[in-house]
Write a protein that binds this DNA or RNA. Structure first.
Length: 152
DNA sequence: GCCAACGTTGGC
DNA sequence: GCCAACGTTGGC
């Protein structure tokens, strides 16, 4: 089991880890990423990479479980759909600015690792999640992942 | 609901 | 290419 590690944020009101679980093996297109830095990380993802699922903009922001990449980056069709809330007038079928990946549920943790806990752990205090709070897709180092895994 | 952080847009 | 204005994210 090798591969890279990532963290994806989602608002549980919009799409929770339970909603991802309900999708089963077919997984879910992780759409709506409209930030270049986040998009670039999406494009670096490879098959079977581990994804930490983080609930943001809720009562207790926390890492709540794990997922994996089941399809690597492809054009975000929502950007071309005028009826989508993710429509982007500057994207065309030839030059689509945005990408998405498909993600599949792996595991929901019995005990979420909260942001406030994360901030108190030395090995995790440099996480992009902490340093760049508005970034919705971020890399996680192997060291960080090990520290997180040992805490749950 | 407030507000800090910060990415994006557009005038010049 | 600079930078002010604006919009969004997300913790609290």
């Amino acid at each position: 089991m090798s591969g890279k590690y990532w963290l994806l944020k989602t608002e549980p009101n919009e799409f929770s880890i339970d909603a991802l679980k309900a999708k089963g093996n077919q997984g879910e297109p992780w759409d709506g990423i409209r930030n270049y830095q986040a998009r670039n990380f999406l494009r670096e993802m490879t098959l079977d990479d581990t994804v930490l699922i983080y609930h943001s903009a809720c009562a207790t922001p926390a890492i709540v479980g794990e997922a994996k990449i089941i399809r690597t980056a492809y054009d975000d069709y929502n950007a071309l759909d005028p009826n989508s809330k993710y429509f982007d007038a500057k994207s065309t079928p030839e030059k689509n600015r945005w990408s998405l990946v498909d993600v599949c549920f792996v595991e929901k943790w019995a005990k979420p690792l909260t942001l406030s806990q994360i901030k108190t752990i030395a090995e995790l205090s440099a996480m992009k999640l902490v340093k760049q709070s508005r970034l919705s897709v971020s890399p996680v180092t192997a060291k960080e992942y090990d520290a997180i895994a040992s805490l749950r």
